[in-house]
Protein backbone atom coordinates (compact mmCIF):
# COMPACT_ATOMS: atom_id res chain seq x y z
CA UNK A 1 0.00 0.00 0.00
CA UNK A 2 1.06 3.54 -0.69
CA UNK A 3 0.17 5.04 2.59
CA UNK A 4 2.22 3.56 5.41
CA UNK A 5 3.57 5.61 8.27
CA UNK A 6 6.78 5.86 6.22
CA UNK A 7 5.27 7.83 3.35
CA UNK A 8 3.45 9.90 5.89
CA UNK A 9 6.64 10.81 7.70
CA UNK A 10 8.75 11.67 4.64
CA UNK A 11 6.19 14.17 3.37
CA UNK A 12 5.99 15.70 6.81
CA UNK A 13 9.77 15.85 7.23
CA UNK A 14 10.33 17.54 3.86
CA UNK A 15 7.73 20.17 4.64
CA UNK A 16 9.24 20.78 8.04
CA UNK A 17 12.77 21.02 6.59
CA UNK A 18 11.71 23.65 4.08
CA UNK A 19 9.99 25.56 6.79
CA UNK A 20 13.03 25.25 9.06
CA UNK A 21 15.41 26.61 6.41
CA UNK A 22 13.17 29.59 5.73
CA UNK A 23 12.91 30.45 9.39
CA UNK A 24 16.64 29.93 9.98
CA UNK A 25 17.50 32.37 7.22
CA UNK A 26 15.15 34.91 8.70
CA UNK A 27 16.62 34.40 12.15
CA UNK A 28 20.14 34.92 10.82
CA UNK A 29 19.12 38.23 9.27
CA UNK A 30 17.55 39.40 12.51
CA UNK A 31 20.66 38.36 14.43
CA UNK A 32 22.90 40.37 12.10
CA UNK A 33 20.75 43.46 12.51
CA UNK A 34 20.78 43.03 16.24
CA UNK A 35 24.57 42.77 16.27
CA UNK A 36 24.79 46.06 14.40
CA UNK A 37 22.52 47.74 16.90
CA UNK A 38 24.28 46.40 19.96
CA UNK A 39 27.61 47.46 18.50
CA UNK A 40 26.34 50.96 17.74
CA UNK A 41 25.15 51.42 21.31
CA UNK A 42 28.74 52.07 22.24
CA UNK A 43 28.83 55.20 20.09
CA UNK A 44 25.31 56.36 20.78
CA UNK A 45 26.27 57.06 24.37
CA UNK A 46 28.91 59.56 23.19
CA UNK A 47 32.65 59.20 22.73
CA UNK A 48 33.58 55.92 24.44
CA UNK A 49 37.16 57.09 24.99
CA UNK A 50 35.96 60.12 26.98
CA UNK A 51 33.61 57.99 29.02
CA UNK A 52 36.37 55.50 29.77
CA UNK A 53 39.00 58.03 30.67
CA UNK A 54 36.91 59.53 33.46
CA UNK A 55 36.33 63.12 34.60
CA UNK A 56 39.91 64.09 35.50
CA UNK A 57 41.52 62.87 32.27
CA UNK A 58 43.59 65.14 30.07
CA UNK A 59 43.37 65.38 26.29
CA UNK A 60 46.46 63.15 26.00
CA UNK A 61 44.99 60.48 28.30
CA UNK A 62 41.88 60.36 26.15
CA UNK A 63 43.95 60.16 22.98
CA UNK A 64 46.03 57.35 24.47
CA UNK A 65 42.91 55.40 25.41
CA UNK A 66 41.48 55.98 21.97
CA UNK A 67 44.48 54.35 20.27
CA UNK A 68 44.81 51.67 22.95
CA UNK A 69 41.25 50.46 22.44
CA UNK A 70 41.23 51.04 18.70
CA UNK A 71 38.49 53.72 18.74
CA UNK A 72 40.56 55.70 16.25
CA UNK A 73 39.85 53.19 13.49
CA UNK A 74 36.89 53.79 11.15
CA UNK A 75 33.69 52.54 12.74
CA UNK A 76 32.90 49.91 10.06
CA UNK A 77 36.35 48.43 10.58
CA UNK A 78 35.74 48.28 14.31
CA UNK A 79 32.40 46.62 13.71
CA UNK A 80 33.82 43.95 11.46
CA UNK A 81 36.65 43.29 13.91
CA UNK A 82 34.16 43.04 16.78
CA UNK A 83 31.82 40.80 14.82
CA UNK A 84 34.62 38.45 13.70
CA UNK A 85 35.69 38.20 17.31
CA UNK A 86 32.13 37.57 18.42
CA UNK A 87 31.87 34.64 16.04
CA UNK A 88 34.73 32.92 17.81
CA UNK A 89 33.44 33.89 21.22
CA UNK A 90 36.02 36.65 21.63
CA UNK A 91 34.31 39.79 22.88
CA UNK A 92 37.51 41.40 24.15
CA UNK A 93 38.31 42.08 27.78
CA UNK A 94 36.13 43.66 30.37
CA UNK A 95 37.30 47.23 31.10
CA UNK A 96 36.42 46.75 34.74
CA UNK A 97 37.71 43.25 35.53
CA UNK A 98 40.28 43.16 32.78
CA UNK A 99 39.39 39.52 32.13
CA UNK A 100 37.90 38.09 28.93
CA UNK A 101 34.24 39.03 28.58
CA UNK A 102 33.40 35.51 27.50
CA UNK A 103 34.69 34.11 30.79
CA UNK A 104 32.59 36.55 32.80
CA UNK A 105 29.49 35.66 30.85
CA UNK A 106 29.98 31.91 30.81
CA UNK A 107 30.41 32.21 34.55
CA UNK A 108 27.09 34.00 35.03
CA UNK A 109 24.85 32.78 32.24
CA UNK A 110 24.15 29.25 33.55
CA UNK A 111 22.56 30.66 36.69
CA UNK A 112 20.25 32.88 34.65
CA UNK A 113 19.44 30.08 32.24
CA UNK A 114 18.61 27.66 35.01
CA UNK A 115 16.46 30.23 36.73
CA UNK A 116 14.66 31.17 33.51
CA UNK A 117 13.98 27.59 32.49
CA UNK A 118 12.80 26.71 35.98
CA UNK A 119 10.64 29.84 36.03
CA UNK A 120 8.89 29.16 32.74
CA UNK A 121 8.40 25.51 33.65
CA UNK A 122 6.82 26.51 36.93
CA UNK A 123 4.62 29.05 35.15
CA UNK A 124 3.46 26.54 32.53
CA UNK A 125 2.81 23.84 35.09
CA UNK A 126 0.69 26.21 37.10
CA UNK A 127 -0.95 28.26 34.37
CA UNK A 128 -1.89 25.71 31.71
CA UNK A 129 -3.82 23.25 33.95
CA UNK A 130 -5.52 26.14 35.74
CA UNK A 131 -6.43 27.76 32.42
CA UNK A 132 -7.80 24.49 31.06
CA UNK A 133 -9.89 23.77 34.15
CA UNK A 134 -11.13 27.36 34.22
CA UNK A 135 -12.24 26.99 30.61
CA UNK A 136 -14.00 23.67 31.17
CA UNK A 137 -15.85 25.05 34.16
CA UNK A 138 -16.27 28.78 33.62
CA UNK A 139 -17.40 30.68 36.71
CA UNK A 140 -16.63 27.70 38.92
CA UNK A 141 -14.63 27.95 42.13
CA UNK A 142 -11.44 27.01 40.28
CA UNK A 143 -12.11 29.65 37.64
CA UNK A 144 -12.47 32.25 40.34
CA UNK A 145 -9.36 31.04 42.10
CA UNK A 146 -7.47 31.29 38.80
CA UNK A 147 -8.72 34.82 38.30
CA UNK A 148 -7.66 35.71 41.84
CA UNK A 149 -4.18 34.33 41.24
CA UNK A 150 -3.80 36.27 38.05
CA UNK A 151 -5.01 39.57 39.51
CA UNK A 152 -2.67 39.22 42.48
CA UNK A 153 0.14 38.18 40.17
CA UNK A 154 -0.21 41.32 38.15
CA UNK A 155 -0.72 43.69 41.03
CA UNK A 156 2.00 42.63 43.44
CA UNK A 157 5.49 44.10 42.98
CA UNK A 158 8.26 41.53 42.49
CA UNK A 159 10.36 42.61 45.45
CA UNK A 160 7.35 42.61 47.75
CA UNK A 161 6.35 39.09 46.79
CA UNK A 162 9.97 37.95 47.10
CA UNK A 163 10.24 39.40 50.58
CA UNK A 164 7.02 37.74 51.72
CA UNK A 165 8.25 34.38 50.49
CA UNK A 166 11.64 34.87 52.12
CA UNK A 167 10.09 35.85 55.45
CA UNK A 168 7.67 32.91 55.48
CA UNK A 169 9.57 30.03 53.93
CA UNK A 170 13.21 30.94 54.53
CA UNK A 171 13.22 32.89 57.78
CA UNK A 172 10.24 31.50 59.72
CA UNK A 173 9.89 27.96 58.41
CA UNK A 174 13.53 27.55 57.51
CA UNK A 175 12.60 25.24 54.61
CA UNK A 176 14.82 26.92 52.05
CA UNK A 177 17.94 29.08 52.16
CA UNK A 178 17.45 32.84 52.21
CA UNK A 179 19.83 33.69 49.38
CA UNK A 180 22.77 32.55 47.30
CA UNK A 181 23.05 30.06 44.47
CA UNK A 182 24.92 27.07 45.90
CA UNK A 183 22.30 24.32 45.76
CA UNK A 184 19.08 23.63 43.91
CA UNK A 185 17.16 24.64 47.03
CA UNK A 186 18.45 28.16 46.48
CA UNK A 187 16.49 28.29 43.26
CA UNK A 188 13.09 27.37 44.72
CA UNK A 189 11.92 30.80 45.86
CA UNK A 190 13.33 32.77 42.90
CA UNK A 191 11.73 30.25 40.54
CA UNK A 192 8.35 30.72 42.20
CA UNK A 193 8.61 34.49 42.04
CA UNK A 194 9.82 34.56 38.45
CA UNK A 195 7.34 31.93 37.29
CA UNK A 196 4.44 33.48 39.12
CA UNK A 197 4.70 36.69 37.18
CA UNK A 198 4.46 34.85 33.88
CA UNK A 199 1.46 32.88 35.14
CA UNK A 200 -1.43 35.36 34.64
CA UNK A 201 -0.77 35.95 30.95
CA UNK A 202 -0.31 32.29 30.11
CA UNK A 203 -3.30 31.27 32.18
CA UNK A 204 -5.65 33.79 30.64
CA UNK A 205 -4.51 32.97 27.13
CA UNK A 206 -4.97 29.25 27.81
CA UNK A 207 -8.42 29.86 29.22
CA UNK A 208 -9.54 32.10 26.38
CA UNK A 209 -8.06 29.76 23.77
CA UNK A 210 -9.71 26.70 25.30
CA UNK A 211 -13.06 28.46 25.59
CA UNK A 212 -12.91 29.33 21.92
CA UNK A 213 -11.66 25.95 20.74
CA UNK A 214 -14.20 24.03 22.82
CA UNK A 215 -16.95 25.81 20.91
CA UNK A 216 -15.45 24.79 17.58
CA UNK A 217 -17.31 22.47 15.25
CA UNK A 218 -14.46 19.97 15.16
CA UNK A 219 -14.79 19.42 18.89
CA UNK A 220 -18.41 18.46 18.30
CA UNK A 221 -17.20 16.12 15.55
CA UNK A 222 -14.74 14.52 17.96
CA UNK A 223 -17.52 14.00 20.49
CA UNK A 224 -19.81 12.65 17.77
CA UNK A 225 -17.23 9.92 17.18
CA UNK A 226 -17.66 8.81 20.74
CA UNK A 227 -14.09 9.62 21.81
CA UNK A 228 -13.69 9.79 25.54
CA UNK A 229 -13.76 13.27 27.07
CA UNK A 230 -10.06 13.28 27.96
CA UNK A 231 -9.14 12.55 24.35
CA UNK A 232 -11.42 15.28 23.09
CA UNK A 233 -9.91 17.71 25.56
CA UNK A 234 -6.22 16.90 25.23
CA UNK A 235 -5.94 15.66 21.68
CA UNK A 236 -8.45 17.84 19.88
CA UNK A 237 -8.82 20.97 21.98
CA UNK A 238 -5.60 21.66 23.85
CA UNK A 239 -3.36 21.27 20.82
CA UNK A 240 -5.16 24.06 19.00
CA UNK A 241 -5.49 26.23 22.08
CA UNK A 242 -1.77 25.82 22.78
CA UNK A 243 -0.66 27.58 19.61
CA UNK A 244 -0.86 31.18 20.90
CA UNK A 245 0.39 30.03 24.31
CA UNK A 246 3.65 28.77 22.79
CA UNK A 247 4.40 32.21 21.39
CA UNK A 248 3.64 33.94 24.66
CA UNK A 249 5.69 31.48 26.70
CA UNK A 250 8.67 32.07 24.39
CA UNK A 251 8.39 35.82 24.87
CA UNK A 252 8.04 35.39 28.64
CA UNK A 253 11.09 33.14 28.78
CA UNK A 254 12.98 35.75 26.76
CA UNK A 255 12.10 38.36 29.36
CA UNK A 256 13.10 36.01 32.14
CA UNK A 257 16.50 35.35 30.65
CA UNK A 258 17.18 38.98 29.93
CA UNK A 259 15.54 40.82 32.72
CA UNK A 260 15.51 39.03 36.04
CA UNK A 261 17.74 41.73 37.52
CA UNK A 262 15.49 42.45 40.49
CA UNK A 263 15.13 38.82 41.42
CA UNK A 264 18.82 38.11 40.92
CA UNK A 265 19.75 40.91 43.26
CA UNK A 266 17.14 40.11 45.94
CA UNK A 267 18.17 36.49 46.12
CA UNK A 268 21.86 37.24 45.53
CA UNK A 269 21.93 34.99 42.50
CA UNK A 270 24.99 35.99 40.53
CA UNK A 271 23.38 35.85 37.13
CA UNK A 272 23.76 37.55 33.78
CA UNK A 273 20.96 40.02 34.51
CA UNK A 274 22.84 41.37 37.47
CA UNK A 275 26.07 41.46 35.47
CA UNK A 276 24.36 43.54 32.77
CA UNK A 277 23.01 45.97 35.31
CA UNK A 278 26.38 46.44 37.00
CA UNK A 279 28.28 46.68 33.73
CA UNK A 280 26.08 49.49 32.50
CA UNK A 281 26.82 51.41 35.69
CA UNK A 282 30.55 50.77 35.26
CA UNK A 283 30.67 51.83 31.60
CA UNK A 284 31.98 48.34 30.90
CA UNK A 285 31.06 48.49 27.21
CA UNK A 286 32.44 45.16 25.96
CA UNK A 287 30.42 43.30 28.56
CA UNK A 288 27.27 45.32 27.81
CA UNK A 289 27.64 44.82 24.06
CA UNK A 290 28.20 41.13 24.41
CA UNK A 291 25.28 40.68 26.79
CA UNK A 292 22.90 42.63 24.58
CA UNK A 293 23.93 40.56 21.60
CA UNK A 294 23.56 37.39 23.62
CA UNK A 295 20.15 38.27 25.06
CA UNK A 296 18.94 39.22 21.59
CA UNK A 297 20.27 36.01 20.09
CA UNK A 298 18.55 34.02 22.79
CA UNK A 299 15.38 35.91 21.97
CA UNK A 300 15.72 35.21 18.26
CA UNK A 301 16.39 31.57 19.02
CA UNK A 302 13.35 31.32 21.27
CA UNK A 303 11.12 32.87 18.64
CA UNK A 304 12.48 30.40 16.12
CA UNK A 305 11.81 27.58 18.53
CA UNK A 306 8.26 28.83 19.10
CA UNK A 307 7.70 29.04 15.34
CA UNK A 308 8.90 25.49 14.89
CA UNK A 309 6.79 24.23 17.75
CA UNK A 310 3.74 25.96 16.28
CA UNK A 311 4.45 24.57 12.85
CA UNK A 312 4.47 21.15 14.42
CA UNK A 313 1.20 21.89 16.25
CA UNK A 314 -0.57 23.49 13.31
CA UNK A 315 0.05 22.08 9.83
CA UNK A 316 -1.41 25.17 8.21
CA UNK A 317 1.60 27.17 9.37
CA UNK A 318 4.07 24.81 7.70
CA UNK A 319 3.20 25.90 4.20
CA UNK A 320 3.41 29.60 5.09
Amino acid sequence: MQYGPAAFNTAKVILMLRFLLKRLGLAALVALTVSLISFSLLFLAGDPAVALAGEAATEEDIEAIRTQYGFDRPIPVQYVAWLTGAFTGDFGNSYYFNTPVIDLISDRLPTTMQLGLAGITFALLLAVPLGVIAAIRPNSLIDRFALFISVVGQAMPTFWFSLILIVIFAVNMGWVPVSGSGTWQHFILPTIVLGYFATPGIMRLTRAGMLEVLRADYIRTARAKGLNPAKVLFKHALRNAAIPVVGLAAVQLGFMLGGSIVIESIFALNGAGLLAFESINRNDFPVVQALILLFSLIYVLLTLLADLLNAWLDPRIRVA
Binding site: A216, D217, Y218, R220, T221, A222, A224, K225, K235, H236, R239, N240, L313, D314, P315, R316
Partner: peptide, 15 residues
Protein backbone atom coordinates in the same frame (compact mmCIF):
# COMPACT_ATOMS: atom_id res chain seq x y z
CA UNK B 1 -23.20 8.73 13.75
CA UNK B 2 -23.69 12.21 12.47
CA UNK B 3 -22.73 14.36 9.50
CA UNK B 4 -22.72 18.09 10.10
CA UNK B 5 -23.65 21.06 8.01
CA UNK B 6 -20.29 22.84 8.01
CA UNK B 7 -17.64 20.78 6.23
CA UNK B 8 -15.13 23.63 6.42
CA UNK B 9 -14.97 23.71 10.20
CA UNK B 10 -16.00 20.21 11.22
CA UNK B 11 -12.55 18.71 10.79
CA UNK B 12 -9.69 19.42 13.17
CA UNK B 13 -7.05 21.48 11.33
CA UNK B 14 -4.24 19.92 13.38
CA UNK B 15 -4.62 16.28 12.37
Amino acid sequence: SMIFQEPMTSLNPAY
